[in-house]
Design a protein around this nucleic acid. Structure first.
Length: 104
DNA sequence: AAACTGACTAATA
DNA sequence: CTATTAGCCAGTT
């Protein structure tokens, strides 16, 4: 496991319940501001029993980015709604309202 | 070492 | 608004 992935997982673990963030922010916190894709790749290889709340990470629009994996998007949305996140008609969450501020 | 892939973004048309 | 292009990084082949 690379140091970058370790930092990514550590940052994701810091996301409070009921909040969401995007891949780019995680990349910044991990020390690589342009590694959004790397973040996505790292999260896609997590073990089923991991303690990392990967479902709190969505794309820049506040929508589920796991569309490419069958069934996963639906599961992620269910997990988020279970924590209080609300999705609109377009399947997007209110970024202004649920975004995680790492400095709080 | 080079080419490919992928749960990304920003800029452009 | 959507579609396309091009950059970006990590990990695999």
């Amino acid at each position: 496991m690379s140091a970058f992935s370790e930092r990514v997982y550590d940052c994701v673990r810091r996301i409070p319940k009921g909040r969401i963030t995007n891949y780019g922010s995680i990349a910044v916190l991990a020390g690589e501001p342009r590694a959004a894709r790397g973040v996505g790749y790292a999260l896609s290889h997590l073990s089923p029993e991991t303690d990392v709340p990967w479902w709190r990470v969505v794309n820049r629009r506040g929508a589920i980015s796991t569309s490419r994996v069958s069934g996963l998007a639906q599961r992620q949305r269910a997990l988020l709604e279970r924590e209080g996140i609300v999705f609109d008609d377009r399947g997007e969450a209110s970024w202004e309202r649920f975004a995680w501020d790492p400095y709080e």
